[in-house]
Write a protein that binds this DNA or RNA. Structure first.
Length: 209
DNA sequence: CGTGTCAATACGGATT
DNA sequence: AATCCGTATTGACACG
């Protein structure tokens, strides 16, 4: 949740600006492009550092290479020099980690799912990220791993439950048949043998044979 | 730290 | 082919 209206507006404008200015923008559509510029202008006005949030705008198969907005910079992944201030004027910026960064984080996560401060700092240095970013990445990764595992467990339990239910049904049926045998006409063992899963008691077996 | 959530980005498929 | 739309992914943040 955004903390104040300015952020909301800035966020909306950034989103709108990007939405209009990137993937879905018909290159010819100057009107939309202009809207994008206006939105981004507003966004940057409200949130000057928001520009960092819109790096890497080379995306999408819609083949829009880059918005012609000079204030959108290339993908920096830069470490800010401020004291790990994660909220840049309250603006939530979102970078995409490079493949190398992601895979190194993944590898590191495989080795240990939590990091001590030294490991965190080392990894951050190595990846040219802020320690906060590494920390958040690991938090998210743990949470999502857990979520996936929960989902897997849920499915397993569901299957197990279904198996038990089937087995229960089968046993009930078997019991019913056995009771029928007890009171039913003789010789019942022949009929019983048609029910595939029933096992005959040794006495009955002798009788049949 | 875990959890819930937001929001930017990516992507596949449908539509024009 | 370009565009739109729905959805998935994921980085970031707030809160307890």
């Amino acid at each position: 949740m955004e903390d104040n209206n300015e952020e909301c507006i800035a966020g909306l404008c950034l989103g709108l600006g990007l939405g209009l200015g990137s993937g879905h923008v018909p290159k010819k559509n100057k009107q939309k492009e202009n809207q994008a510029v206006v939105c981004l202008d507003l966004a940057f006005e409200l949130c000057p550092k928001g520009e960092k949030a819109v790096n890497n705008v080379n995306h999408h198969h819609d083949k829009v290479e880059r918005i012609s907005l000079e204030r959108i910079h290339d993908y920096p992944n830069e470490k800010s020099t401020d004291s790990d201030n994660s909220n840049n004027n309250g603006c939530r910026k979102k970078l995409r980690l490079s493949k190398d960064q992601s895979s190194m984080l993944e590898n590191s996560f495989k080795q240990h799912s939590t990091l001590n401060p030294v490991q965190k700092q080392a990894l951050a240095d190595q990846l040219n990220l802020k320690t906060r970013q590494v920390e958040v990445w690991f938090q998210n990764r743990r949470a999502r791993t857990k979520l996936k595992q929960t989902e897997v467990n849920r499915e397993l339990l569901k299957k197990h439950c279904q198996n038990l239910s089937d087995e229960n049904k089968r046993l009930k049926k078997e019991l019913q048949e056995l009771r029928a045998v007890k009171v039913g006409p003789s010789p019942p063992c022949i009929q019983l043998s048609k029910t595939a899963t029933l096992t005959m008691c040794s006495l009955c077996e002798k009788l049949v044979n």
